[in-house]
C-alpha cells in the first residue's frame, strides 16, 4: 500500500471513530436536561407573598445566610408528589429547603402542605410563574442549590430522590457547608 493511501485509510478510520464517539456520547446524554443559564449567577430578585402567612412578603434577602435548596413545585405536578417524602427526609436531616409554589392555586397548595407535611423553611407563592420565569423554569419540579451569598451553584430538573441526592446534590451541598 502506498503512503498516500495509508494516510487516506487512516483519516477515514479516524472520522468513523470520531462519529462513533459522538454517537455514544449523544445516546448517553439526557436531551431533556438543559444546561442552566443561571449557574454561578445570583438568584434573581423577587418580592412575592408567603404562601402560608397572610400579608407577609418574601424577597431574595430572606434566602441568604446559609447554603439551601430552592425547590419549584406545584400540586398539578405528579413528580412533585413523588419527591415530597424525600424532601421531608432531607428537611429532617437539617437541610434548608425553600419552596416556590409555581403556577398553582394557593388553597390546594396549603392543603397539600398540611396533609403531606411541610419540608420548606419558607413557602414562596408564585401563582403567575414570574419568579419561575426568571429562574428559567420550564416544568416542575426543578431544584436549585444556592450558596450562602445566594449564588446558584447547581440545578436539577426532575425528581430529587435518594440517588440524585447521594450522587449529585448532596456532595455539592456538603462542599458549600464547608465554605
Amino acid at each position: 500500500m502506498s503512503k498516500g493511501r495509508l494516510i487516506a485509510v487512516f483519516a477515514i478510520l479516524l472520522g468513523v471513530a470520531a462519529f462513533a464517539g459522538m454517537a455514544v456520547y449523544g445516546l448517553n446524554n439526557d436531551p431533556r436536561e438543559l444546561p442552566s443559564a443561571l449557574i454561578n449567577k445570583p438568584f434573581p430578585e423577587f418580592k412575592l407573598n408567603n404562601l402560608l402567612v397572610e400579608g407577609q412578603t418574601i424577597s431574595k434577602q430572606d434566602l441568604l445566610g446559609k447554603p439551601a435548596l430552592v425547590n419549584v413545585w406545584a400540586t398539578w405536578c405528579p413528580t412533585c408528589r413523588q419527591e415530597h417524602d424525600d424532601l421531608n427526609k432531607l428537611a429532617k436531616q437539617g437541610v434548608t429547603i425553600y419552596g416556590v409554589n409555581y403556577k398553582d392555586e394557593s388553597a390546594k397548595a396549603q392543603r397539600w402542605l398540611t396533609e403531606l407535611l411541610n419540608p420548606y423553611a419558607l413557602n414562596i407563592s408564585d401563582p403567575k410563574g414570574t419568579l419561575g420565569f426568571d429562574l428559567g423554569v420550564y416544568g416542575a419540579p426543578e431544584t436549585f442549590l444556592l450558596d450562602k451569598q445566594g449564588v446558584i451553584r447547581l440545578k436539577h430538573v426532575g425528581e430529587v430522590n435518594d440517588r440524585v441526592w447521594r450522587e449529585k446534590i448532596g456532595p455539592a451541598y456538603e462542599e458549600l457547608l464547608k465554605q
Binding site: A37, G136, Y138
Partner: peptide, 8 residues
C-alpha cells in the same frame, strides 16, 4: 430569554 433559558 437567553439570560434565563440559555442559548438552547
Amino acid at each position: 430569554l437567553v439570560d434565563r433559558y440559555g442559548d438552547f
